[in-house]
Design a protein around this nucleic acid. Structure first.
Lengths: 216, 216, 216, 216
DNA sequence: AATGAATGAGAATTCATTCAT
DNA sequence: GATGAATGAATTCTCATTCAT
C-alpha cells in the first residue's frame, strides 16, 4: 500500500512535469509561428493536444508561459557557456581564435532553439516593457562577458585602449543583429563560418587600412 | 461665388489634412507611450481630441495608421539624407570625418522623432510580418548606402578588402542597436559624440593592435 | 450650428439616461424572476433589448448594477417618508392611528416596487457581505425612526418604559418578516389592513390580558 | 472468517459514515465563512482534507450537500424541542415563564450551530427557491407550535383574543430577526437574557400603557 | 462631416464534473 | 476506494467597428 501510494505520487509528479513541458514546447512552436499577440491560449492548448482548462492548471495566463519559456531558454543557454571564461587568451592571435570558437559554439547552440531565439530577439519589446527588460538583462550578461575579455586584452596590451563598455555592447549588437539577418535569410551568399570570420575581422581590425595615430 | 466655393473646398481639404495630421501625431504619441497592442483606437481619438468615429473617416483601421505613420517618418528621414552621397571621400581621414558628420546628423534628425523611432525599432515584429519587412527594407536602404561608401573606399584602396555586404549590415546593426541602448538609458557615462567617435573607431580600426597579415 | 450641437448633446444625455434606466428596470425584473446568482449579464441585456456590450457601457459588472438599483430604490423609499416625523403623537390613541397610517403608506409605496423590494429582502445576504450591510443600514434608519417615536411616547408617559433600541428593532423585524410572508402568499385569509391592525395591536398591547406589575 | 468479514463491512460502513460527516462539517464551516456561491467544491474537499473526487463519492453535487446539512441541522434542532408542548401553561405567569425558558433553551441550542444557523437564515433565498421553501417550512413548524400555545392561552382566557396565525408568525419573525441582529453584533449593550426578557415583555404586554377597550 | 452610443464577435477564464491511475 | 489531473461548457468582459443623430 505504502509503496503503491508513493509510486502514484511519483507518477503524478512525473506526469505533471511532462504535461507542463508539453505545453511549454507547444507554446514555443505557436509563438514562433504566429507571434505572441496573434497566439491564443486555445492555440497553445490545441497544439499541445490538451484541453484549454489544462493550460490554466499550469500557467496563470499567456504572459506567464512566455516567462517560463524564456527562463527555460536562458537556463539552457547560460549552461552552455558557463565555462567560457575559464582560459583567457594571452595574445591577439589566441583572442581571435577563441572568439571564433566561442561564436561558432553560440551559433550551434542557438541553432537548436532557432525558432524560439528568433522569436525572443524580434518580439521582446512587443510583449511588454518587463519582458524587454528581462531580455536586455540577458544581453547585458553577454556584454559583461565580452567586456571582461576585452579589458583583459587591453590590460595585456593586445587590444587597443577604448571604452570597453561601449565596444562590448556594440559587439553584442552586431551578434544579435546579424543573427536576426541570417536567420531571416537576409544574408544570402555567405556561410555561417564565413560570416563569423568576417565579423571577427571587422571587430579586430576594422575596415580601414590605416591605424589610428598613437595617442590620437 | 466661384472663388469662394473653390476657397471653401481648399479650406476643407486643408482642414481634412490638418485633422489627419492631428490623428497621426496623436497616434505616434500614444503608440510610443503604451505600445501598439495596448493602444486602443479610442485612446488615439481621445489624444487627438476627436470622436472615435472620426478616426475611421481618415483611416481604415488601427493597422493602417501605423503604415501612414511609418511612411511619414520615412519620408522625413530620407529627405534629410538625400544628399549624403554627393561628395564621396577620397582617403581614410575624409572617410572618417564624413562618417562622423553623417552620424551626428542622423542622431540629430532621429532625436526629433525619438519616441516614434524607438517605437518602430522595438516593436516592428510585434506588429506584424509585413511591417517588420517594411522596416527592414528601410534598414536595407541604409545598408546599401553604407555599402556604396565602403565599396568606393575599397576600390580607392583606403578600406580593407572585405565582404562589404556583411560589413555594411553589421554597421547598420551597430547603429540601430546602440541607438536603442542609448535612448533606453542603458549607456550611462558617455556623450553622444563620444559614443559616435568610439563606434567609428571600432568600425575603422577594430579593437585589436595588430593588423591582419596581407592576403590573410 | 451652436444650437444644433447643444441640442444633440442634450439629446445624447437624455438618450443615455433613458438607456441606463432601461437597463436598471430590466435588471430589476430579471433579478426578481431568476435571483441574483442565476441572472447572467446577457439575461439583463436581452431583457432590456440591448446588446451585451451596451450593458458594460453603463455598469462595470453585475455587482454594480445591483448597487445602482438599490440606491435608486432607497432614494424613492426615503423620499416617501421624509416627512414622517413632522407631527409627533401626543397620546396612545394618536400613536396608534399614526402607526397604522404610516404602515399603510409604507405598504402602498412598497407595493409599487414589490418585486424588487422582495428581492432585496430575501437575497441581500446571498449577494455579499457588503450588500447585506447596505440593506441593514437602511433597516437601521427605519429602526431609528421608530425609536424616536417610541422614546417620545415613553417620555410623554403613553408608552411603557422599555429598551427602546431593542423594541424598535423588533418592530422593524416584524414589519420585514410579515411583508415577506405576505408577499409570498404565506398569510392567507387576512387583508393587508387586517394584518396591519393585528400587528399594531400586538405591538401596543401584546397578546396577554394582564399588565406587568408596576415596577416589575 | 464470517465474523471478520462482517466486521470489515461494518468498519467500512462506519468509515464511510465518518468520511461523510467530515465532509458535512467541512462544508458547514466553508459555507459559513465564504457563503454558498463563493464556495467551491474544491474548498470543501480541501477543508475536509480529502480529494475532490472523494466529494462526489458522497454527494451528487454542491447543492445536495446543502440539503444534507440542513436535514442534519433540523434533526438536531427538533430533537431539542420535541418535549416542548408536554406541559402547557395554565395562566399568564406560567406562560411567561415557559416562554422565557423555551427561548433560553433555543438560544443555547442554536448557539452550538451558530455559524450554520446564521448561514441558513441569511442565505436561504440566495441558494434557490426550493431551499428557501424548506427553511420556511421549518419556520412554519415553529409558528404552528407557537400558535398551539397561543390558542391554548386564548381558550384559557389568559391571552387576548387575536388572529393567532398572524401573531404567532410575527413572534417567529421577531425571533429570527433578533437572532440575526444579535449574532451579527448589531445589538450592542444588552445581554441575551436581557434581550429575551425585553422581547417576551413586548409580546405579552406590548409597549403601550393603556389596554384596548374590551370588544374593540 | 463629426460624433459617440451601440453592437456583438471573439477571447480569457473559471470550476463543476469526469476519469485514468 | 481514493485521488487529483484533465476537461470543456459556460460566462464574463473587451474593443474594433458600425450607425443613427
Amino acid at each position: 500500500m505504502e509503496v503503491s501510494l508513493s509510486k502514484r505520487i511519483t507518477t503524478n509528479l512525473a506526469r505533471k512535469e511532462r504535461c507542463k513541458k508539453t505545453l511549454l514546447d507547444a507554446a514555443g512552436r505557436v509563438f514562433a509561428r504566429k507571434g505572441y499577440h496573434d497566439t491564443l491560449v486555445s492555440d497553445i492548448a490545441a497544439e499541445a493536444k490538451v484541453g484549454q482548462g489544462t493550460f490554466y492548471r499550469y500557467f496563470r495566463d499567456k504572459r506567464e508561459i512566455i516567462d517560463a519559456l524564456f527562463d527555460e531558454f536562458t537556463a539552457g543557454l547560460l549552461a552552455g557557456f558557463s565555462d567560457m571564461s575559464a582560459r583567457l587568451p594571452t595574445n591577439q592571435r589566441e583572442y581571435r581564435a577563441a572568439s571564433i570558437g566561442a561564436l561558432k559554439k553560440v551559433a550551434a547552440t542557438a541553432e537548436q532553439n532557432r525558432a524560439l531565439a528568433l522569436f525572443f530577439i524580434r518580439e521582446a519589446a512587443g510583449i511588454d516593457r518587463e519582458f524587454e527588460a528581462k531580455l536586455h538583462a540577458l544581453y547585458g550578461k553577454f556584454a559583461a562577458l565580452a567586456q571582461v575579455y576585452l579589458d583583459h586584452a587591453i590590460a595585456g596590451g593586445f587590444a587597443r585602449p577604448c571604452n570597453s563598455a561601449v565596444v562590448s555592447q556594440a559587439l553584442i549588437g552586431i551578434g544579435v543583429w546579424m543573427t536576426n539577418q541570417w536567420w531571416n535569410d537576409r544574408m544570402s551568399g555567405v556561410t555561417v563560418d564565413g560570416l563569423i570570420g568576417e565579423l571577427v575581422d571587422l571587430a579586430m581590425y576594422g575596415f580601414g587600412v590605416d591605424r589610428p595615430l598613437p595617442g590620437a
